[in-house]
Simulated assay, not measured.
Amino acid sequence: MLVVFDVDGTLLDSQHGIVAAMTEAYESHGLDAPAREHVVSIVGLSVPEAVARLSAGFDDHPLEAIGAAFRASFMRARQAEPHADPLYPGARETLEALAARPGVTLALATGNSRRGVERFLDTFELRGLIAASRTADDAPSKPHPAMIRQLCDELGFSPEATVMIGDTTFDMLMARDAGARAIGVGWGYHPADRLHAAGAEAVLSRFDELVAALGLPEPAEAA
C-alpha cells in the first residue's frame, strides 16, 4: 500500500506562518491583506493558483510579484525559526509506525515548493520515513491528479493500492481523479462535510485512527 500525505494542515500546523507571510506579501505591495479565513481556504494549492484565487476580481493585483513576496517571507520565517510551525500531535509516531510495516510505503504530495519540502524533511528528520515526494515544482497544482500518478509510477503502485491523506478538498479531489482512495483529517483547514462531499471515505479526528481507516490490522501486543 502506498500512503501519500499532504504536508501543510495534515502533518504540519503551518496556518499561522502561511497567514503571516501572505499578509506581508499583500501589504508590501500596498494592498489590503486577504482575511485569514480566505487564506486558510487556499492552503494546499500551488502559490500561483492560491494568489490567483485570493486576488480574484482585482485585475490590478500583480499576481506574480505577490507570489514571489509570499515565498520570500515564508522562507525567511522558516529559516529564522525552523520549528515555529510544529508537527500535529501523533504525526511523527504515525509516520514511524506505518513506515515500519511490511508492504507500506510513504510519500508526500504537497502544494509547497521543492525547497520547502526538503527543508521540512530535514527540520523534522523524516527522510528515512518518506520514499518520495511531489511538490508544486514537480507537477500541476492540486486538485490535478498528476502528483499521485507520478508517485504511483515512481514507486510501483497502482492507484487502487494508493491512499491520499489530506485536510482539504483539493487532496480529496486529486485522489478521486487519480483513482486512489481518500481519507481526510479533521484538524486541518477544510471542514469534514466538505471533505466527505469531495470524496473522503472517512475523516479522522486523531492520528491514531489512521491504521483502522486504512484497513490495516492493529499491531500485535508485545509478549
Rank of each mutant, 00 (worst) to 15 (best):
M1S: 12
L2P: 00
V3P: 02
V3G: 06
F5V: 10
V7L: 12
D8R: 07
G9Q: 11
T10I: 13
T10N: 11
L11P: 05
D13W: 05
S14K: 08
Q15G: 13
A20D: 14
A21F: 03
A21C: 07
A21D: 13
M22Q: 03
T23H: 13
T23M: 02
Y26D: 03
Y26Q: 01
S28H: 04
S28D: 15
G30H: 06
L31W: 13
A33T: 04
A35Q: 12
R36Y: 06
G44D: 10
G44P: 02
L45Y: 15
E49Y: 02
E49S: 14
A50V: 08
V51T: 13
S55R: 11
S55T: 15
S55K: 00
D59Y: 01
D59S: 14
D60L: 05
D60K: 02
H61Q: 02
P62L: 10
P62H: 09
P62N: 12
P62G: 06
L63R: 15
L63V: 15
L63W: 07
E64C: 00
A65E: 15
F74L: 14
M75A: 14
M75Q: 13
A77L: 04
A77G: 02
E81N: 09
H83M: 02
A84R: 15
L87D: 05
P89K: 10
E93F: 01
E93Y: 01
L95G: 03
E96M: 01
A97P: 01
A99M: 07
P102G: 05
G103R: 09
G103Y: 13
V104D: 06
L106V: 07
G111T: 06
G111S: 07
G111C: 08
S113N: 05
S113P: 02
R114K: 13
R115C: 00
R119I: 00
R119E: 11
L121E: 02
L126R: 11
R127H: 07
R127M: 01
G128R: 08
G128S: 12
A131P: 00
A136K: 02
A136N: 05
S141Y: 04
P143S: 10
A146Y: 01
A146R: 14
A146W: 01
Q150A: 14
L151K: 06
L151E: 12
D153N: 06
L155S: 06
G156F: 04
G156R: 02
S158P: 00
E160R: 15
A161W: 00
T162K: 14
V163K: 03
V163I: 13
M164Q: 10
M164V: 02
G166K: 10
T168L: 05
T169A: 15
F170C: 03
F170R: 04
L173A: 14
R176H: 13
D177P: 00
A178C: 03
G179A: 11
A180F: 10
R181G: 13
A182Q: 08
V185G: 07
W187H: 02
Y189C: 10
A192T: 11
D193G: 03
D193I: 05
D193C: 03
H196C: 03
H196L: 09
A197M: 03
G199N: 08
E201D: 10
V203W: 05
L204C: 05
R206I: 00
F207H: 14
D208F: 04
D208P: 02
A213S: 09
A213M: 09
G215P: 03
G215E: 13
G215S: 04
L216V: 01
L216Q: 07
E218D: 13
P219E: 11
A220F: 04
